[in-house]
Design a protein around this nucleic acid. Structure first.
Lengths: 339, 339
DNA sequence: ACATTCTACGAAAACGTTTTCGGTAATCGT
DNA sequence: ACGATTACCGAAAACGTTTTCGTAGAATGT
């Protein structure tokens, strides 16, 4: 019922000017104590809150951050958002989220919708289609307009912006080396198709680790999953056709699927086959057996991304035109899937 | 570099008035074809897009929906957001997300931040603290200002608004009845503390189902978890002290934890103990054994909530002051944890 | 030829703020 | 007592739109 109260209404009710009300509420010395108190009391009584849209228009900044990610139901992305939200809120920013659903077109549309003044800057992770097409014109348009972008996880190098990533090669290396140190020597890796950066890079780390130890690396050790939602068959094939004593999986889902297939085939984990997965999420913690994982620190990545974006937004001095790539350290969490 | 282009800049460059530009771009008949084309061409060339903040201020509507949920890393909430986002986007709305982290204060603060004109309406699920305190003044303030709210899952009855819930009593009944029909007769339920609605209601359904079948229901059949992050001990106790042949768990986490504890105690699932869980998420699908669950249809709930909110927002005729509670049907998904 | 109707455009208000600039009194200094 | 300062307040511009209204000139009607 009680419609929203504005400066104008207060000014009319109290027979003063709008500017007087505004100044009074912001404790300007130009207003007498008497008038100020009267106005403040009235404002409080009617629960006045400045209209944020009007402020945005006036100040030319919205105090909002736009997020574009492929999916929100992936635990990793959810943790990133959680991290972004935490530091953004703490610095007085709000978070608008849009989902690309791994679609290039939706990514472009969402970006255009947000870039029309709705937000001050972007935090995003590219869709699979975008990675595949290598078409970044929408990103370039936004940066050209002077709107900063911080990319995380799935990034590209063609756009000048800050980035927050994990060193996927090193992490792949670490996972592999960990298995080698446990005495394993017949390793396989279950990865994604190559245009997904993280899959390619982790595979590369896998390869490098093996080569450093003098192993020959052969194609049959690599499984590249195309359709993540229907991976059972491919994974089952993979483990049956090869005689691995250990596996690296670039995400939890592949790992759990492989784990089940192995158990079904009568192999014991970790005795017969050891496993290391990426993304330390729910599944790793609660699968049977629980999975040794390389944690992706989504929460931390989100926090860092938000901090960097806000820093850029609030350094009005535009001279600051340098871009940084933050590499977040991964952490190996040992669980039951490794001896 | 190329700063954002506005109507004013176009009008100056083309030596016409701002109103002419605006009309031309909106295909007004008041503008000659020649002028219109010239303006449109220029606008396209410089990629003009109307500033959404200015539009929001002018139209007194933002085309944005505010979401407040306890946590985003819970799969159920993530699916709800996904559903909201889908239908909202399709109808030209954007989604702003804030997290209460189960804290009453943060819920209030977030609500106040969003209610200052940032959004047109709310979709929310209450924090645990709010449910416990039963303090809804912040909700009432918002509805009093004429801003609609749609609540889902964790709702309260003190606020006039639309609601989207599952019939938790019926669902608890269904889960229990399912086990009874499988011939089980020593049932237990692992639930949350009573101020969390869903836990209480599902427990009630459990009780009713048993009573209808003529069973006596005793306190030792109920476990109410206080601290969801440290539930192992309590659950282990619960299953060791009782000789259940089947369990209902009000969420996946409890179910998986119980499943592990049971297997550790040498019980086979489902032969010795059958289990039904709530929330059909990742864990249920990938745990060992996989879990029979009552799906919560988060995606659908989110979609319905968004549709109802937008419907309310766009029915300018304020006469429409009736509120509806939509009950989403649950679906039982049978997996390995039941015979 | 004169009144009327179109055509095509501009001026201005409105949305809710903040801030700069002016201006009127009253107070001060000498 | 007179100029200068101070205390207090209002007008107006600005942010970027859309829309209502006004109006000049041209075209039309009789």
């Amino acid at each position: 019922m009680a419609q929203k109260i504005t400066l104008k209404k207060i000014s009319q009710d109290l027979k003063v000017s709008v500017s007087t009300v505004s100044k009074a509420l912001r404790d300007s010395h130009e207003i007498s104590a008497e008038t100020r108190d009267k106005i403040k009391e009235y404002a409080k009584k009617f629960n006045y809150k400045p209209n944020s849209i009007a402020l945005s228009l006036k100040n030319q900044k919205t105090k909002k951050i736009g997020i574009i990610i492929p999916e929100i139901v992936h635990h990793f992305f959810a943790t990133v958002i959680s991290g972004v939200e935490r530091v953004a809120n703490q610095k007085g920013y709000q978070v608008i989220i849009t989902l690309s659903g791994e679609s290039f077109d939706k990514e472009v549309v969402n970006m255009e919708m947000l870039a029309n003044g709705s937000i001050d800057g972007f935090i995003m992770s590219l869709s699979k289609e975008t990675m595949e097409k290598q078409d970044f014109h929408h990103l370039r348009e936004v940066t050209n307009q002077g709107m900063p972008i911080v990319m995380f996880d799935r990034v590209c190098n063609d756009i000048p912006c800050d980035k927050v990533i994990i060193d996927d090669v090193a992490a792949g290396h670490e996972a592999t080396e960990f298995l080698l140190r446990k005495g394993r020597n017949k390793l396989g890796i279950i990865s994604t198709v190559d245009y997904v950066n993280v899959g390619r890079l982790r595979s590369q780390g896998f390869k490098e680790a093996l080569q450093q130890r003098g192993f020959e690396v052969e194609d049959h050790q690599f499984l590249k999953i195309e359709d993540i939602d229907n991976c059972e068959g491919a994974i089952e094939d993979f483990i049956l056709k090869n005689d691995f004593d250990s596996l690296v999986a670039v995400n939890e889902l592949f790992a759990v699927t492989a784990s089940k297939a192995l158990q079904k085939a009568g192999k014991r984990i970790p005795e017969d086959v050891a496993m290391v997965a990426f993304t330390d999420g729910m599944l790793s913690k609660y699968a049977s057996p629980t999975l040794t994982t390389i944690g992706q620190q989504g929460e931390e990545m989100g926090g860092i991304a938000a901090a960097k974006l806000i820093e850029k937004l609030e350094s009005k001095h535009h001279e600051n035109e340098s871009y940084e790539t933050v590499i977040v350290k991964t952490s190996l969490v040992e669980r039951e899937s490794t001896p």
